[in-house]
Every structure is written in structure tokens, then in C-alpha cells.
């Protein structure tokens, strides 16, 4: 998509930038401020995972329309170590870094659509969407 926003993630300031851009995009698209916060929190978790586990990667933000719904789409990609067992990584409290283990499962709860595809040694892509019904 031509109007994709691409935010490279390589330092902790990039995590802040990514979640702020996500909030701005959601605001422009007419999402409530509650939803903006939810989207920003999910981006923060997923972008931090890139930094922590893959060192670098990127977050792409875009808007889509589907019938009478509009969505914010967040795609977080890295070419890091990948996740061996995605279903375990999605369990509350599972962490290989001594973290809280709430980033992936928490972001999944915050967003409407959530998908993780990962292959060991190749990298990880997290795709998540939040929808809003547009007024006719």
C-alpha cells in the first residue's frame, strides 16, 4: 500500500515512535481515544519484542476498509531467531527472557485480529488489526 507508514525498530526510542504513530493514525481514522490507547499499548509490546528478541525489525502501519468497517493494520516484522512454539508464546506468563510474558497474549486481547507467523532462524511477523464501524 502506498500510504503505509514504516517505522524501523532498532532502539528504545523507536518503540515510542511506533506507538505514537499508531495512535496518530488511529486518531486520524476516527478511532475513540480509548481505542487509540489500546492500539498504542499493543504496538508498544510488539515493537519491544522486536528490539528484545531480534534486535531490529520494522513496524508497518496502515488503514484498510472492509464494507462499513475501517481498520488499523499493524504488521511487525523481524528477521530474528523466530519463535519455536508460538502457541506457548501466546500463553499468559510464558517468557524466555524473565519478562512478564504478557506482551503477545496481552496484545492479542487488546486487538480484534491477531496473527503470529514465525519460523526458527528466519524471523517473526505479527499482524494485528483493530476495527471500527464507520457511520453511514
Amino acid at each position: 500500500m502506498a500510504d503505509d507508514l514504516l517505522i524501523p525498530i532498532a532502539a528504545d526510542v523507536d518503540v515510542v515512535t511506533a506507538r505514537q504513530r499508531g495512535r496518530d493514525l488511529a486518531a486520524e481514522a476516527g478511532f475513540s481515544s480509548g481505542d487509540q490507547t489500546v492500539i498504542a499499548a499493543a504496538i508498544s509490546e510488539i515493537a519491544r519484542n522486536i528490539l528484545m528478541y531480534a534486535k531490529r525489525g520494522e513496524v508497518a502501519l496502515s488503514l484498510v476498509t472492509n464494507g462499513d468497517r475501517q481498520g488499523v493494520v499493524i504488521v511487525a516484522r523481524d528477521q530474528g531467531p523466530g519463535i519455536r512454539d508460538v502457541s506457548r508464546a501466546l500463553e499468559d506468563g510464558y517468557s524466555t527472557s524473565g519478562g512478564l510474558g504478557l506482551g503477545l497474549p496481552g496484545a492479542r486481547r487488546l486487538m480484534d485480529d491477531f496473527d503470529v507467523s514465525s519460523s526458527v532462524g528466519k524471523g517473526t511477523t505479527v499482524t494485528m488489526k483493530k476495527w471500527r464501524r464507520m457511520n453511514a
Binding site: 481515544s33 480509548g34 487509540q36 490507547t37 489500546v38 498504542a40 499499548a41 509490546e45 499468559d92 512478564l100 504478557l102 497474549p105 496481552g106 496484545a107 486481547r109 487488546l110
Partner: peptide, 14 residues
């Protein structure tokens, strides 16, 4: 802690 922040925290499980 702002209300919306509290809401997102609870959803995250924090």
C-alpha cells in the same frame, strides 16, 4: 493513571 490507560492495562493483564 488515566482511565483509558487503566483499561488497556487490565486487558494486557498488567
Amino acid at each position: 493513571i488515566q482511565p483509558e490507560v487503566a483499561f488497556a492495562m487490565v486487558q494486557l493483564g498488567l
